[in-house]
């Protein structure tokens, strides 16, 4: 995983969430097993288990006994809502702090964003 020093299970859970949001894992489809995740990311299986458990607790994934882990119906929309809230904290707030440091007004920020096409 990345070198940021953040707990790996958080990084892995986030990555799986992003893959659900981007439809790489569709609702009601199976996600890789704990062992597959551990092998792919070269991490301890206990860490992969922790990530999966968190997603189960959040009702993003559910377990089919003897088969594996599946994406819950409605998980995508819930994740988009959750990530939008995080977007504000992680991107908008630092943007404002940095803008304030440079003396950029909110009007100017909106103008800048208007020039970007997305």
């Amino acid at each position: 995983m990345d070198e940021s020093g953040r707990p790996i299970f958080l990084q892995l859970a986030e990555q799986l969430e992003n893959q659900i949001i981007s439809d790489q894992f569709k609702e009601e489809s199976q996600v890789p097993s704990i062992n597959e995740l551990a092998t792919f990311h070269r991490i301890n299986p206990a860490t992969a288990l922790k990530a999966i458990n968190q997603l189960v607790d959040d009702a993003t994934l559910y377990k089919k006994r003897g088969i594996g882990m599946f994406v819950n119906a409605g998980a995508k929309q819930a994740l988009i809502t959750k990530h939008s809230q995080k977007f504000r904290a992680e991107f908008v707030e630092p943007l404002i702090i940095e803008a304030r440091k440079l003396g950029i007004t909110s009007q100017e920020i909106i103008q800048m964003l208007g020039k970007e096409s997305f």
Binding site: G5, R6, P7, I8, F9, L10, N44, T47, K50
Partner: peptide, 9 residues
């Protein structure tokens, strides 16, 4: 003496 994941954060 710590769990690696606890240590990371």
């Amino acid at each position: 003496d710590a769990n690696t994941e606890d240590l990371r954060g």
